[in-house]
């Protein structure tokens, strides 16, 4: 009898979880798709068309710039941890501990820090650059961890073979280990893109909320911020739904890609 009850609760919980997800996505699609009109993709934002295209372009720029900073640093850092550092060295311990700390820090704290450091202290103002730098710190631990894991999963025989053929450590890393670890690193990068696309709290005080395509030191709002602005203004609920549809589409696309990359590793 007790087992039956537990089983029923288990089924119920799963039903709650997944029907919430289906409801969320279904509801937003149903309400948002009718508002996906061509005017929503006009090149410039006006209060007439409430175009989301500038925000979409800003999002792409933010993603590109953040990755440009975080990917090399994160990958190099993981290379150091896995391929160069001595096991159990002090630096490795510190790097791991701080990376773990970084991954637990909520985005509003990143926003506060970015505003104090990049916007005020360095004097960049509310800008694409300040926002991207803030986000690159936020995604750094994610890139580090996924790269570290995929470097570790490359069998040592590869390295030994390469050393045996007379290649140095650097050559081995770039020619042999990195290519073998690429799908795992890619999966991490895609996850990082997902976090950037969905981010609001860390951007609102660093990149600002202006609805335009910004230059490097100009303020611009990403799609998520755009949606936040629309829904808190309360005037453009329909367009907010439509923006949510675009955001969800991007997120679903990113998840599919990342799963594909992850499957590629599993096959090896």
């Amino acid at each position: 009898m007790k087992s039956k009850i537990l089983l029923v609760i288990t089924w119920l919980s799963a039903a709650v979880t997944f029907s919430l997800l289906i409801f969320l996505i279904g509801y937003i699609l149903a309400r948002g798709i009718p508002y996906l009109k061509p005017s929503l993709f006009a090149l410039e934002y006006t209060t007439e068309n409430v175009s989301l295209l500038p925000a979409l372009i800003t999002t792409v720029m933010t993603v590109a710039l953040s990755l440009l900073i975080a990917v090399p640093v994160g990958v190099f850092s993981a290379i150091y941890l896995v391929e160069y550092a001595k096991r159990g060295s002090k630096i490795v311990k510190w790097v791991r501990a701080t990376a773990e700390t970084l991954s637990g820090i909520p985005s509003i704290i990143y926003g506060l820090f970015g505003w104090m450091f990049f916007v005020s202290f360095l004097g960049w103002g509310l800008s694409l650059l300040a926002g991207s730098c803030t986000l690159s710190i936020m995604i750094l631990p994610l890139i580090m961890r996924t790269t570290e894991e995929s470097l570790k999963s490359v069998p040592d025989i590869y390295r030994e073979g390469s050393f045996g053929l007379g290649a140095g450590r650097l050559r081995t890393v770039f020619r042999i280990v990195l290519p073998a670890a690429a799908p795992g690193i890619l999966a991490g990068v895609i996850l990082a893109i997902g976090r950037i696309v969905g981010e609001t709290a860390a951007l609102i005080f660093t990149a600002g909320t202006v609805a335009q395509v910004p230059g490097l030191l100009g303020s611009g709002r990403t799609l998520a911020i755009h949606m936040y602005a629309l829904s808190s203004e309360g005037l453009y609920t329909g367009q907010a739904y439509a923006t949510a549809v675009v955001l969800l589409a991007v997120v679903i696309g990113i998840n599919t890609l990342s799963a594909k990359a992850a499957k590629k590793i599993a096959k090896k």
Partner: peptide
């Protein structure tokens, strides 16, 4: 994958919902 999707939905979308 549905659980992963639940994790990927941006917090503004949750807030709006």
């Amino acid at each position: 994958p549905a659980v992963d999707l639940l994790a990927g939905v941006p917090s503004v979308v949750y807030g709006f919902f």
